[in-house]
């Protein structure tokens, strides 16, 4: 599904990301952890073709992300506020993204009913612009928009940050359900080890831009705690 090869990013000679190989198969739930400055967001940005790598490449379904736009239909993403259009209302924003993915009114309705719970009656049908939303609601809007178009892959940066506990649980359930039902692949980064271990069957630790550990299976939480204790 996603293949990262010899990916390097350097700023003024110092390396920020240096990943020799990372392959994420379809249906995997992939967690990225690491302390501040480890290069998590930079890695995600390179996967999404937002930053040009110094060398190496990222392919999604065999398409080099730098060379065409095809993969964009298959990838939903939300990294930060730069993904939202502050002067639109959430409704308009969703409609807009929906249209880009060829959504019909029926599809839109399905989308709304899927996120009704998460939105908790706050985002839809209000005449409030995205720029005026609280941080938590901003996050919800961005995350929900990433699901539009039923993409095969969803990439989220710190999805649990700023969310209230109920929404955190709902979001986790949603991701799990999508993964079971339609083999959704998702990549998330988080500082919350409990959430990551609960949600992801594969966890990669990034340090100074390099993959330090690639953990799978049981007992990942203990290993992670061991690593971060030092």
């Amino acid at each position: 599904m996603i293949l990262v090869k010899e990916l390097k990013k350097e700023y003024k000679g110092s390396s920020v990301v240096n990943v020799s190989e990372l392959s994420i198969p379809r249906g995997e739930s992939f967690g990225l952890v690491g302390n501040n400055g480890a290069g998590k967001t930079t890695l995600f940005r390179m996967i999404l073709d937002l930053i040009k790598p110094t060398s190496g490449e990222v392919t999604i379904n065999g398409n080099n992300v730098q060379l065409n736009d095809e993969w964009k239909k298959q990838v939903g993403s939300f990294l930060d506020e730069n993904f939202l259009i502050s002067y639109l209302t959430p409704d308009e924003y969703f409609q807009f993204v929906g249209k880009l993915h060829g959504y019909s009114q029926e599809d839109m309705k399905n989308f709304y009913s899927k996120f009704e719970e998460l939105f908790n009656g706050e985002l839809i049908g209000k005449n409030k612009r995205i720029g005026d939303l609280s941080k938590g609601n901003l996050k919800k809007a961005g995350i929900a928009a990433a699901f539009i178009g039923n993409p095969e892959v969803i990439i989220l940066d710190e999805p649990f940050e700023n969310l209230d506990p109920t929404s955190q649980i709902r979001l986790k359930d949603l991701l799990k359900k999508e993964q079971q039902e339609r083999h959704l692949t998702f990549l998330i980064s988080s500082h919350d080890l409990n959430h990551v271990t609960d949600l992801c069957n594969r966890i990669v630790i990034l340090e100074k831009g390099q993959v330090i550990k690639d953990l799978k299976g049981e007992n990942t939480l203990a290993e992670l705690e061991e690593y971060f204790k030092a």
């Binding site: 999404l48 736009d69 964009k72 730069n82 880009l100």
Partner: peptide, 14 residues
């Protein structure tokens, strides 16, 4: 500028 990243990641060709 505030949502340029959004534009790049959406299914619209340059």
């Amino acid at each position: 500028g505030g949502h340029f990243d959004f534009i790049i990641t959406q299914p619209i060709s340059m």
